[in-house]
Design a binder for these strands. Structure first.
Lengths: 206, 206, 206, 206
DNA sequence: CCATAAGCGAGACGGTACGTCACGTCTTAGA
DNA sequence: TCTAAGACGTGACGTACCGTCTCGCTTATGG
């Protein structure tokens, strides 16, 4: 019982939906963001503007959906809602694992295409409380939860204080990287990543 | 010898400049940012659009200048370029001083007018590398320097590790607050501020 | 042998056809013409747009058909193609009969609903040569023929010149009324109708 | 005291105004009317759409203005408001003069460019009472007056009944030609023009 | 007396043009 | 000389309909 009313145009719907999101990602990744107009997206997707406006209320929402779809993997309809089960490496050495992950994050931000995409997303989220809430719920929290799972494992292994505030730990770890990237306040080096990991671990040592 | 060339139209210039910046601040503080147009600024300032474009290349630059002027105090022409000598309290108790400052910062962000202003600024900076550099030079670095002065005093008093990376310390302290505010990821409470101070101090204990 | 292929769905066909034409007439009569869209007609008729496009190539054609059906009376399919036998009154006094008819025509134009309908029809005909031809054949010529029958009777009675050009006579009679109405050049009074009759009769007196 | 408020941008204004009207005339004359869009006019005139909408409320009004400007000759600003003094030929032979004029009118309608232009104008006027009134005042009445001047001269010469209703005479003369053209009811031949003149003269013989 | 296939309502689709808004430039009158 | 005022060319906005298409349901026989 997938549809509740009206005929099921899901095939066409799905095709155009994917075309729109792919076009959005492509444009955001390769053009300066002010050139990413709804008209350009429609043209690139081979779609009428109305087809975009029928589904999303604003360019922000499209950009957000484009990013969301990316994170959800294949994201076909009827897919599992519990997500693609992100998980951090767990070699038993928390410091090493975190260094690996944080270095990878730093490198990701260095990719110009990804930089443009995430910068666009950040801009839209910063100026739209509704999108911000959806971002927290659909993207940030699941990811945080995966990270906290790794931290709990470290707590059990006695590598973190038993009463450590894991949310705070993650903030200490990631926020400085994010801010440095957003404000272009300095290079996102492996050294910086390592220093962050070390400091966070010191702050919450057992 | 206040003006260097031509007749003395500097009074009118300065008056209109101030009117433009004040109008920009007022609009940014009270309207949703997409309604802050150059035309609205010009109308509010009682100024022709061209007078704005003659001085700044884009709306971003005006918004930035408006914020910059705010931080520079009265910012009359010919004022001291070395700034208004920001300084953090120094009671001798680093933890107490930092808690005070960080709680104040958190409260500042809670003011809707300031929220809109700094959000606009952040948006413009995030998408314009030139503005970002100017922001670093004119606003961020002086402020960081003032904060680091206080930290060096703490180092001398043996309240921080002698080899502590002060930039990193400040990142740990401020970035989580900034990120939480920008993404509306949680409330900016005094408790959160205190927890940040405690964690940072633990990470760089002597 | 009413239908040539497939099962006979003529009842549904006929019902929807009538619904479309009725909806078109209703809309044209009560709305400004630019609001008469194919979508509005379909909605009002409780019909899909495709059902309209399956039968007529354009809105013009629908409007024309709606008017045509009106003139053909009940216009069920298979009806007599020779029409409903329009006939002008023939009291023996040509002047009196024409005054009666022309005054009635003038009054018809004064009805706002009829005004809108005929104005829409005129607009479509004026800009579409195919419709114009169909209009001449299906509506104008039969009516002209009925009028000419009355005129021939008058000729036989010696009330019109034996060699009078009856088409021209009718043009003199009706075209000024039509033009005055179309251009809103003046009121369509009984006096004006009478003056037209008198002038035409003088021009073709025996 | 030409302008009442604000600076006088009349040079640019006038240049763009002329460009718009010329482009409109060109497009209407050479394209099917549904392709004459405001965007096409703007593009052809090398003008922004807004410049059109700033001056006229709708396409109808632009088309009308384009036609009006044509009739007013050079129509520079500040020109004589009493018009270009249209006058009919007056050889003393009313019948001959009218035949000449009516034949010329018939030929004019046969020119495809003029046909399209006047058909567009007629369509717009037929569906807009405001334009219709302006048409009567600015175009129809001055022309009628010129024609009536010639008829009064004929009355004085005893070629028309002294008490003839000259408006009615003109309606008899021109309306049949107009209607035949508008409805494409028949060819606009010289013979038809002559027949109209003869009939009208018979109707209003002295 | 169903089985079936044509026709139907609904409405999404790729488009075009609409009329509006703000951009950044240009022009003018006047202080 | 520089300003305020504001018109200009440009281009994106979000909306309305166009005419086409695809769905699943209705319906009236013909097997």
């Amino acid at each position: 019982m997938p549809n509740e009313k009206g005929p099921d145009h899901s095939r066409r719907k799905e095709r155009s939906r994917q075309a729109i999101l792919a076009a959005t990602r492509a444009l955001v990744a390769e053009e300066p963001y002010e050139k990413v107009t709804v008209e350009a997206i429609a043209a690139r997707a081979g779609v009428g503007k109305q087809t975009i406006y029928r589904r999303w209320p604003s360019k922000s929402a499209v950009v957000f959906a484009a990013f969301l779809a990316l994170s959800e993997g294949a994201d076909g309809p009827g897919e599992g809602a519990d997500g693609p089960a992100v998980a951090l490496p767990d070699t038993g050495d928390l410091g090493a694992d975190l260094r690996l992950v944080l270095r990878a994050t730093a490198e990701e931000f260095a990719d110009p295409a990804f930089d443009r995409l995430i910068r666009a997303l950040t801009t839209e989220i910063a100026n739209d409380a509704v999108l911000a809430a959806e971002y927290q719920e659909k993207l940030a929290q699941p990811l945080e939860e995966a990270k906290k799972a790794r931290l709990r494992s470290a707590q059990a292994a006695g590598q973190l204080a038993a009463d450590a505030d894991l949310d705070l730990f993650l903030d200490l770890l990631y926020a400085p990287l994010f801010q440095r990237w957003l404000h272009r306040a300095g290079p996102l080096t492996a050294d910086y990543a390592d220093a962050l990991v070390d400091a966070a671990l010191r702050a919450f040592a057992p």
